[in-house]
Structure formats: C-alpha cells, structure tokens
Write a protein that binds this DNA or RNA. Structure first.
Length: 419
RNA sequence: GUGACCGUAGCUCAGUUGGCUAGAGCGUCAGGUUGUGGCCCUGAAGGUCGGGAGUUCGAUUCUCCUCGGUCACCCCA
C-alpha cells in the first residue's frame, strides 16, 4: 500500500537548477550546429529492431544491450541504442537532397551496468552528414566537435583519430589480425583470447596491460589499406592541420560499432578522473545506408553524451553558476486576489514573475521572496489595497517605495534593468 | 553479465563490545514585531536505522538472502 518508487536503475531525474545546465549544453550545441549549416531533425525514440540490428551482430550495443520488446501489435521494436541508425533510416525513407547535414538531441538506451559517466538512459547531441564522401566533410564534422568543446570553454581534451579504410580493407585486416593473434593466443588473458576469432579488432584496444604488450607489434591497418583509403586519411589529416586542430593518430582506436569505415575519432576529456572519458565519439559509415535498404550513400557523424560532457564541464569548472530565474516576486497579505492580478500584469509586460500562495504571513512570504532570487518584491497590504498602490522593494538594496498601481510595471522594469 | 565497497530523518553524517522513548548540522514549517526577507534566538514536524529471513531473552548493531547506491571490468557517450 505504501510502496514507493525510484527512478529505474541507471536513469536519473534532472531537476532545477541542474536542468538549466542541460539547456546550456544543448543550446550551445544548437548554435554551433547552426553555424555549420546543420538542420534539426526529430524522430521516433523507438524503431523496428531491424534498424538497429544493422549495426552489426558483433556489436555489444546490439548483442546484449538493447531495450527491445514486442508492442501490443506484436511488432518487435527497440528503444534507440544510438542515434545514427535512426537518422540513416529517416534518410532512406525521405531521400532528402544531399549532402544532408542534420543534428539532433535524443535519449539513448543501453542495458548496461551503470557507473561513473555511464547510464542506462543517457542523452546525446548528435550530428550526421549523409550523401557526401569528400574527406573535407570528415574534417568539418571533427571541427564542429572541436568548436563545441571550445564554445563550452573546455580546454583539457585530446582528439584521437584512426582509419578503418573501406569495408574490404577492414575485412582483410581482420583476417590478417586473427591469424597473427592465433599464434599468440596463449599469451592473452582469457577475456581477450575469446575475441581473437569473433572481434579481433577489439583485442587491439583492450585495456589489459598483458594484451597491450602482446599487441604492441601487431600488423597495422595502414599496411593493408588501398590507395584510395590512404589518400582519404591523408586529406583528413591535412585538413585538421590546416585548421589548427591538434590530433593524435592511435592505430589501436577501434570503437564498438561495426559499421565504421575510414575515419574514426574520439574527443577524450583529460580532466575526467573516471574510466569513461570519451565525450565525443564518431566516424564514417559508408556502408550503413545501403544495409538499411537505401542506395549506396556515404555518411559520417558523431554522438556526444550530455551527462558525460557535464561531468567534464564540472571537472574544468567552466559552466557559469545558475543565475536567478526571476525578476519579481509578489507578496500579498490581503487574500491573494491582488497577487493574482498583479502577477499576470507583470508577466504580460515580459517580467519573470512569481508569487506566494496560501495566504501566509508577510514574514513568511518575504522569506520566500528573498530566497527566490528575484531582484524586486512587490508588496500589497491593507493600506496599498485601500489606496490603489503597491510597495516596490529592491531586495538587494533593501530600499522600498510605494507607487500608484498604474506606474507599477514601469517602476519594476526600471529597477530590474538597473545595475 | 562479473567483481569490490556501501545503505541511519529531504540532504550530509554521528551512534550502540547487541539492551531504556535513535541523535547532530543543514533544509522545511511556526514563533521571537503592530505589515517586511537575507543575521540571531526558540520551538515543531520528519526515521518501521533499505526490505525479508535467521541467531538471541533482546538486533539499527551479528549471519544469510534480496533490493538499491557507488566504483571498476566489459562496452561506450
């Protein structure tokens, strides 16, 4: 009977004033995306599960982390485990003119064990460009990410890039690597040994030191890339250098989604002490649209976790302290009708206004007014009510004056605007 | 999915070698003024000591299970 509930494991409520910080991130991202000419897209938070299965059977996100279920019409659907597949599906469905440059904000669901910087429902801002294979697009997308970090005021991060080449390059490399690893499997920890046949690339970026020792002189992807892939990657590096965006190449950077081709990149916060430090991650996915039933269409994009970016912002102390969300607070000890009417009048004039309810004492109402952060209190007592006036108090200076009602809005506005 | 640590009021935490009505600070609410906040003083509300089972004369304190939290692995934003 008195059972209580909490937010589900790995989810969180975002309440004021913290929700304000969210808005800062999203609006900052929106500004940057607009500066690059990207349009906003909204889409369903769930899709036919087939959309996500195209991410690849070797992907944990698909294999074991999906929130999937059968709806009342027995359709097998899944909550978004990432944004790219949904956007690609929308592209196939609507066939917009290319290059299609879009961004979105979306919740993302993954059935994982939560830890610092990782949730079962988190939120991402995301950009995607479909229909353009030019390596300059890779550069633009990465530059957009760097500008986002800069706009937030973050300085302690590094950009790591790598290339997977074409799907053929990738497959060839995986074969080469498997063969090479087979001979050394005995030296690998059991967890990584299991991946030799199934996901050889994942052995490369294992965190285990024993594995890193073995893999140190493994064959490199660069050794199998075709000329086109080499040229593409070279052009990306050239672009980043030209734009003054510092980066490092990490030949062991793999990333978990199977659909990546050519350029892969991650922005990692160096201010975060946690194990999860990637704040932006993405790459090119030239085969994905085709796998979703569309025409051969190149694509590239990245996702950036809002919660994790907030952790990075905290670690660098870059977000401004929350400012007051109110201009005026109306105190009325004559029954509340005056507060009701004056508050609406002030709001109609564009002033951010709140009031006390419940007919509390003036002292109690003043306390709420003080706590509200409003610059001005408008006070109506029996005296003001009788003479058609209101008392206007500057809560910061502690000075007040009684003015006729028809001068109220103008007076309050002047005080709010005054420094 | 695996492992470690943790679980006392809304929040941050005391506490008892197992034993009378479980405490503090902050917060909330009400007073200290006849119409006034931020400081100060007083008081009040608020906890089945996460839940269940066991050991015991007796458990918030010991054991087990479970749920939840945190962090790490895995994986990823």
């Amino acid at each position: 009977m008195s059972e209580t509930f909490r937010a589900p494991i790995g989810t969180q409520d975002v309440l004021p004033p913290d929700s304000h910080r969210w808005q800062i991130l999203v609006s900052t991202f929106a500004d940057v995306a607009a500066r690059y000419g990207y349009g906003l897209v909204h889409g369903p938070m769930f899709e036919d599960i087939g959309v996500f299965l195209r991410l690849g059977a070797g992907t944990d996100v698909v294999r074991k982390e999906m929130y999937d279920f059968h709806d009342k019409g027995d359709r097998h659907v899944a909550l978004r485990p990432e944004a790219t597949a949904s956007v690609a599906r929308a592209y196939v469905q609507h066939r917009p003119v290319t290059p299609w440059k879009v961004w979105c904000v979306t919740p993302v669901f993954r059935y994982e064990r939560p830890q610092a910087g990782r949730l079962r429902q988190h939120h991402q801002v995301d950009v995607e460009v479909l229909g353009e294979a030019d390596p300059d697009v890779d550069v633009e997308v990465i530059a957009l990410g760097a500008d986002y970090l800069a706009a937030l005021g973050l300085r302690r991060w590094r950009l790591v890039i790598n290339t997977m080449g074409t799907p053929a390059d990738r497959a060839a490399y995986a074969r080469t690597l498997t063969e090479w690893l087979r001979d050394r499997a005995a030296d690998l920890p059991a967890e990584d040994r299991e991946k030799v046949e199934s996901h050889p690339l994942r052995v490369l970026d294992s965190k285990r030191p024993e594995t890193q020792e073995v893999v140190a002189d493994a064959p490199r992807i660069a050794d199998v890339l075709d000329q086109g892939s080499r040229d593409h990657f070279a052009r990306v590096q050239e672009g980043l250098r030209a734009l003054g965006i510092p980066f490092e190449i990490d030949v062991r950077l793999v990333r978990g989604l199977d659909y990546y081709t050519h350029t892969l990149f991650e922005f990692q916060s160096e201010a975060l002490e946690t194990a999860q430090s990637t704040v932006i991650g993405g790459g090119r996915y030239d085969g994905l649209v085709e796998q979703l039933g569309g025409p051969p269409t190149p694509g590239i994009g990245f996702g950036s976790g809002i919660e994790r970016m907030l952790l990075a912002c905290d670690a660098e102390g870059v977000l401004p302290p929350p400012e007051s969300v109110l201009d005026v607070f109306v105190v009325d000890v004559t029954g509340g009708a005056a507060a009701r009417d004056l508050a609406q009048e002030l709001r109609a004039a564009g002033l951010r206004t709140d009031r006390a309810f419940g007919g509390r004492s003036m002292k109690a109402q003043m306390k709420v007014a003080g706590r509200s952060g409003a610059r001005v209190a408008v006070i109506v007592g029996e005296q003001e009510l009788a003479e058609g006036t209101a008392t206007v108090r500057d809560l910061r200076l502690g000075e007040q004056q009684t003015v006729p009602r028809d001068e109220l809005v103008a007076r309050v506005r002047r005080m709010v605007e005054a420094e």
